[in-house]
Design a protein around this nucleic acid. Structure first.
Lengths: 247, 247
DNA sequence: TAGTGGTCTAGACCACGTG
DNA sequence: ACGTGGTCTAGACCACTAC
């Protein structure tokens, strides 16, 4: 942690981009833990031998990307995955009346298997590479609304156990972060409508063939590295998926 | 255009927020047209009697909101709605293979009516207020994929004619901008899955009851003012809705 | 009181687009 | 050659948090 300005020199391009790079490098190495404060701007400017304004510009971008969080008078902190953040940042399925609830997650199955073509492509691994497959049912307001099928690359989640999943106390992304040092910072989603198959219909208590929302999510960590592939099937009779464009 | 620093003084809060306010005021008044350049940063700083850095900070935020566009060496421009921008900014339905196409829009119907409860709420007008109702069918790659039902508040779109809609040369949002000075800058969307009814199934060439994506969009201009309510029904057999979270 | 981020300044110099 | 936005500096002062 003392030697953040080690590593090679990214001489080209603006100075602040290099600073941003060094900061995300340090984050990737786990030098500063989620929830902890990074050094003060004045200290970083001394350490890097540059002006505070340049440090601020680098931090500005990381704040805009929801990787760091500024708090006036307190410091700048590494974003962490807690219930609050999940609710307002990564869970885009909401009741139609708008009142948000914490989901109740029930583990349905846990297995280790091999990546198929589609999963391999999403996770940028080779077909046949090891993956963990988890199925969860999410209840909102005590009603089962979402079935999540999650695929995780075994290489990055070495030693993951069903127990960890079943006994985790916070969110799933918090588990990735705490147990494997993997911080999800971005997600790309593709949404379509399709009819419910029998097994999902049973879990959600709806008719086979009813219209369901399918959300295919690729979750990424720093540097656009994919760490999770997730297919969510959502009963949208009383819930909706929301998105904001621009603004 | 010479007197941008007129109007009342928003003394509280940071200076740059006041500058941002004065800039969006000028945009709302139509002082600078879409596609045109706003005055250079140095000129604005002289006009407002503040430093360039503060002007830049105000412009920074407007650029982040896709309201202004900076181009090094050329100037700073008011964002305009053209085909390119629609494609990469407001049209979130894409073929599953990822290759984007310009949609071919066919006007199905145009009428003037009164706002129902739902439309009135979305547009923040009173139930019973006048609205224009437009139905379009969008073809992607010559195949009908989307049915759009658009509601526009008659008060803001006074004198809108079917002819304008039928003969417009660029995008629909470009029409709002050119003919009514209304710039859509944000959209909030709610997505769900539902079965196709007969009339839509016929337009899209699918079976009644097939699973469709329903996108309810409220489009907003500067200052969060709603200007369009749109319900899109999408056949997602070969197309998807995409969204990005964070990053 | 001490330390943090937030705002604002005044200026130098660079990179880019245009004529 | 000129005007534009982009980067970087060095410093002052304010607003907020914590002790």
């Amino acid at each position: 942690m003392n030697d953040t300005n080690a590593s090679e020199a990214p001489l080209d391009g603006p100075l602040y981009k290099g600073v941003k790079r060094r900061l995300t490098d340090a984050l990737t190495r786990g030098e500063w833990k989620p929830g902890a404060a990074i050094p003060a701007e004045r200290r970083l400017s001394e350490r890097f031998q540059i002006s505070v304004g340049t440090v601020r510009k680098a931090i500005d971008e990381l704040v805009a990307e929801n990787i760091l969080i500024r708090q006036q008078g307190r410091g700048t902190f590494v974003a962490s995955h807690n219930r609050e953040r999940e609710l307002f940042h990564f869970l885009h399925v909401v009741p139609e009346d708008g009142t948000k609830q914490y989901p109740d997650v029930q583990l349905q199955s846990f297995a280790r298997g091999k990546a198929g073509r589609r999963t391999a492509e999403a996770l940028r691994i080779a077909p046949g590479d090891g993956v963990y497959r988890i199925r969860n049912v999410l209840r909102l307001d005590a009603v089962p609304v979402i079935v999540d099928d999650i695929a995780l690359p075994a290489q990055r989640f070495a030693g993951l156990t069903e127990r960890q999943f079943r006994e985790r106390r916070s969110t799933i992304y918090n588990l990735y972060q705490e147990a494997f040092g993997i911080s999800v910072v971005t997600a790309r989603e593709r949404v379509r409508a399709l009819p419910a198959d029998e097994s999902v219909a049973a879990l959600l208590g709806i008719d086979t063939g009813a219209a369901l929302l399918s959300i295919r999510r690729i979750a990424l960590t720093y540097r656009e590295l994919p760490v999770e592939y997730r297919v969510s099937l959502v009963n949208t009779v009383h819930h909706e998926y929301w998105a904001e464009i621009g603004g």
